[in-house]
Amino acid sequence: MQVVNAEFAKPKADLVDPNPWGYVLLACETDPDSVATDPDGAEGVSVRGGPESVSDLRAGLYGRIGPIRDALLRLTGVRAVSVFEAVLFAPGSPDRYPPHGSGGRRARFDTVVMIETRSPADLDALQSAPAFGELLDAMHTKSVATEVITMTNVKKIADVDRHRPGVFLYNFFFAQVPQRLLRIWDHTAGWWQAVGQLRNSELLVPTSPRDTAYAIVNSARWDTIRPALDAFRDPGYSDFVLVNIDANKASTMPSLYRWVQ
Rank of each mutant, 00 (worst) to 15 (best):
Y214Q: 03
Q127K: 15
W191E: 01
V260G: 03
V112P: 00
K156V: 14
Q193N: 07
V144L: 08
E43D: 12
T141Q: 09
V35G: 04
F89M: 05
D110H: 05
Y170H: 12
T111N: 06
Y97K: 09
R164I: 11
A228H: 00
F232I: 08
T150F: 02
T224Q: 07
R183W: 07
D246N: 09
V83K: 00
N19R: 11
D137E: 14
S143G: 11
R226S: 11
H100Y: 13
F84D: 00
G77H: 04
V45C: 03
Q193A: 13
G103Q: 05
I149S: 01
F174G: 00
P120V: 07
L203E: 03
S238Q: 15
F173L: 11
L57W: 05
D211R: 15
A36N: 02
T188P: 02
W185S: 12
P165D: 13
F232E: 00
S34P: 02
C28Q: 03
P91E: 05
L203N: 06
V47G: 02
D234H: 15
D186Y: 07
T212M: 05
G103E: 07
D40I: 13
H187W: 05
P39D: 05
F240C: 03
S201I: 11
R58P: 01
S201D: 03
V177E: 06
L182E: 07
M151W: 02
G49T: 12
F240D: 00
A228Q: 03
L123G: 04
D186A: 11
Y97S: 09
P235D: 09
T152V: 15
S55R: 08
M253Q: 14
L57Y: 06
N248R: 08
S102H: 10
A215W: 02
L72Y: 07
T252R: 04
R74H: 12
K249H: 14
V205Y: 01
D14I: 09
G77S: 06
A228K: 01
T150N: 05
G92D: 02
P254D: 07
A158T: 10
S208H: 13
S82L: 00
F172L: 06
K12L: 13
D161E: 10
P120N: 02
W222I: 08
V160L: 05
L73E: 14
L203R: 04
V35E: 02
G60K: 09
D246A: 13
Q127L: 12
V4A: 12
D56H: 13
D234C: 07
L181S: 04
F168P: 01
A107T: 09
R258F: 00
I157M: 08
D14C: 09
F8Y: 14
F132A: 15
L126G: 01
A107R: 02
A71V: 10
G190L: 12
D17R: 10
Q179S: 14
F174A: 08
P51M: 11
A42T: 10
E85Y: 05
L135E: 03
P91K: 09
P91V: 10
A247S: 12
C28W: 01
P206W: 01
T152I: 13
A125Q: 06
P39L: 05
R118E: 13
V47K: 02
G77P: 00
V16C: 08
A107Y: 04
D14H: 10
A145Y: 15
V45T: 12
S219E: 03
G236H: 02
R183N: 11
W222E: 01
D211W: 07
D186Q: 07
D95I: 11
F172P: 00
G60R: 09
